[in-house]
Computed example of a mutant assay.
Amino acid sequence: MNERLKILRKTLKMNQQEFSNKIGISQSALTLMENGKRTIRDVYITQMCHTFNLNEAWLRTGEGEIFITSKTFSLDEQAKKNNLTDLEIAIMRGYMNLDREIREKLMDELEAIFKISNETAATIEDKSIDAEIEAELEAYRKELEAEKKGKTLSALLKSERKESS
Rank of each mutant, 00 (worst) to 15 (best):
residue 1 M to R: 08
residue 5 L to R: 03
residue 7 I to M: 15
residue 10 K to M: 13
residue 16 Q to Y: 05
residue 16 Q to S: 09
residue 17 Q to V: 13
residue 18 E to V: 14
residue 20 S to N: 08
residue 22 K to W: 03
residue 24 G to M: 03
residue 24 G to Q: 00
residue 24 G to D: 02
residue 25 I to G: 00
residue 26 S to I: 03
residue 27 Q to K: 07
residue 27 Q to H: 04
residue 31 T to F: 10
residue 33 M to D: 04
residue 38 R to L: 09
residue 41 R to S: 09
residue 42 D to R: 06
residue 43 V to Q: 13
residue 45 I to S: 01
residue 47 Q to G: 00
residue 49 C to I: 03
residue 49 C to W: 01
residue 50 H to N: 14
residue 51 T to H: 02
residue 53 N to Q: 09
residue 54 L to A: 02
residue 54 L to D: 00
residue 55 N to S: 03
residue 59 L to D: 01
residue 61 T to F: 01
residue 61 T to S: 00
residue 62 G to E: 00
residue 66 I to W: 03
residue 67 F to N: 01
residue 69 T to F: 06
residue 70 S to F: 10
residue 73 F to R: 01
residue 73 F to I: 11
residue 78 Q to R: 12
residue 78 Q to M: 10
residue 81 K to N: 14
residue 82 N to C: 13
residue 86 D to C: 05
residue 87 L to F: 14
residue 88 E to T: 01
residue 89 I to A: 02
residue 89 I to V: 14
residue 96 M to A: 09
residue 96 M to Q: 12
residue 100 R to S: 08
residue 101 E to C: 06
residue 102 I to H: 09
residue 104 E to Y: 04
residue 107 M to V: 11
residue 109 E to A: 11
residue 110 L to D: 02
residue 113 I to N: 08
residue 117 S to V: 03
residue 120 T to M: 11
residue 122 A to V: 04
residue 122 A to P: 06
residue 134 E to I: 13
residue 136 E to I: 12
residue 137 L to W: 04
residue 139 A to W: 05
residue 143 E to I: 11
residue 146 A to Y: 08
residue 146 A to K: 15
residue 146 A to S: 15
residue 149 K to W: 10
residue 150 G to F: 14
residue 150 G to D: 08
residue 151 K to Y: 11
residue 152 T to Y: 13
residue 153 L to H: 07
residue 153 L to D: 09
residue 157 L to K: 12
residue 158 K to Q: 12
residue 160 E to W: 12
residue 160 E to N: 07
residue 163 E to R: 14
residue 165 S to C: 12
residue 165 S to H: 13
